[in-house]
Amino acid sequence: MGKHVITMLPGEGTGPEICEAVRRIIDHTGVEIVWEYEDIGLDCLDKYGTLLPEKTIKSIAKNKLAIKGPTTTPIGTGHKSANVTLRKMFDLYANVRPAKLIPVLKRPWDKIDILTFRENTEDSYAAIEHMVSDEVAQCLKVITWPGSYRIAEFAFKWAKANGRKKIQCVHKANIMKMTDGLFLEAFREVAKKYPEIESGDIIVDNCSMQLVRNPGQFDCLVLPNLYGDILSDLCAGLVGGLGFAPGANIGDNCAIFEAVHGSAPKYAGMKKVNPSAVLLSGVMMLRWVGENAAADKIEKGMNKVLAEGKTLTYDAGGTASTDQYADAIIKAMN
């Protein structure tokens, strides 16, 4: 493969130390990467007056590929989330979240391999909110046919390319007949084009209950934005928590890979947090650009370190620092 130019967004809080560990591990695969470091998040406010500087936007627009560390959205200050802004600006409409059981992380289940495809740009995240009287607030839930159609199409294509067998549309169309009804209708229309993949639908509340009781029954889920946000975290909880939950935000010509956890500012500089979620996001990114051998190498190295159980970060029951954990993975990759 040729050289890759990737925008690196370390974020703030523990983000820079996590991203440094991840960069070292990815570089150790031998894949040729030019990293373009750019700023994003709270630390940008003083310097640029915005969470998402113009220079960062230009870098992503040029490279069409980025990996991002955690950032924090200030609550109640009027600043829009940099994450959501990026997704909307570059129309990264497919949020792909794998929840796969890592064998050595003990859980009550022996089989979980769920892929959630969350529509990433619409729904109640369209930021259309009004105080329509002094005691009534409303938020418009925006669901469009083309937006619903393309996330369903994305999921079916992904499933077909990766040997997945079954896709379910998660909705509440029994109550929200127009909005979720349209989402389900588009899903069913797309499903007709993929008869080789089993398709069905499930109501979101039932899906939540089933995920907790019997998660092994699920393969791929396609969800509108809000249900996707919630259930993808639920799935992450089933396989070890957000410390091991990677994510990808993908559009037709641009992709940003990121962990979904926060920036844990209280641990900043202590080099103790688990970099696995960003690392696994990097693994997804390497597969996205066709560097499958490098991705496999990292994943095997990480699983080996987890199986040995000697060099684990605190959240996985160990005492290793971020750097010690990264070094152990690099050693296991050799």
């Binding site: 936007i57 627009a61 909307k88 600006m89 570059f90 129309d91 740009t121 619409e122 995240y125 369209a126 930021a127 259309i128 925006v142 469009t144 937006g147 559009g251 037709d252 010509n253 641009c254």
Partner: peptide, 13 residues
């Protein structure tokens, strides 16, 4: 769909 399209940058995608 909630994304600002004027004024300012609009992705071709």
């Amino acid at each position: 769909r909630g994304t600002k399209v004027w004024p300012g940058y609009v992705s071709e995608d």
